[in-house]
Design a protein around this nucleic acid. Structure first.
Lengths: 140, 140
DNA sequence: TTTCGTTGTAATAATTGACATTACAGGATG
DNA sequence: CATCCTGTAATGTCAATTATTACAACGAAA
């Protein structure tokens, strides 16, 4: 099982807007060409990013723009914005047998550990900002 | 997107074998009753655990047994054994536009960071052994 | 104000993976 | 050899992802 590509597509999209706004009209179609997905996919992701206050999208005239300094957007923020993982990363089998001492307790035993693992991953995503990435991009 | 429940089912299964072998015949059907899944699911997971040297399963006579000290089995080992995540946790969009400076470079920019996040999660799983869990189980 | 390019969003389909379930051949043991 | 089991293939269902078409609403410019 993999985390949906919405996440990497969203990061890609933000970097592309940053790179091209000013020189090009960053429409969903333009962005879709860089990412190589359907423009509708980009529009939906832009909606999520807009809801998170990261971009501004103009309805009629077209074009998306960065609405927040890149150094204030971490990979974790994007990950959250596009909702890659609803709630828990690990999937529990729902109905262990309550009449079994193991079944009755697995959930409690594991929950904390699994949450810690997920948090460790998420904290690692917090360490990178989009500015870090933009700075490493060769000049357009 | 969630990581398959095979992982938590496998941990549950190992703990159940540990708890009941000696007092009960730990057949796939018996274990399935504790976890509350189909016995075939258990048999398939037992195959993975056997391949990883964690259990021994007897073909004709029935019953699974722990084949390795619980303190030598970490959550990470189980996670690996059942192959929750084939390779990379994060899913990349496969064909970004190579003619775009962003498309050409996103992969390289992100790969290291995403791998670090995944590793952080996996390292956290290494911190818990099945013995830790078994010790916290109320006596059968 | 009409036109034109874009966004926002619904509807639909294709694809994929998980999990359940049935079925049965082939061990092991009394 | 009769009886439990395991090992595994085949099939079905369900949910989530992504692609794609279609179109109403919107904004700016002619």
């Amino acid at each position: 099982m993999k985390i949906t590509s919405r996440f990497t597509v969203a990061v890609h999209t933000l970097l592309a807007i940053h790179t091209f706004e000013g020189s090009d009209k960053t429409t969903s179609e333009f962005l879709a060409a860089s990412v190589n997905v359907n423009p509708v996919v980009i529009r939906r992701i832009l909606q999520s990013l807009k809801a998170a206050g990261m971009v501004e999208v103009r309805a009629g005239s077209g074009g998306a723009h960065i609405a927040k300094p890149l150094e204030d957007i971490t990979l974790y923020d994007v990950y959250r914005a596009v909702d890659c993982v609803e709630g828990e990363l690990f999937h529990f089998h729902e109905h262990p047998n309550p009449d079994c001492p193991v079944g009755r307790n697995v959930h409690a035993l594991l929950d904390g550990r699994l949450a810690a693992a997920q948090t460790a991953m998420e904290n690692e995503l917090r360490r990178t900002t989009l500015k870090d990435l933009a700075d490493e991009l060769p000049a357009a």
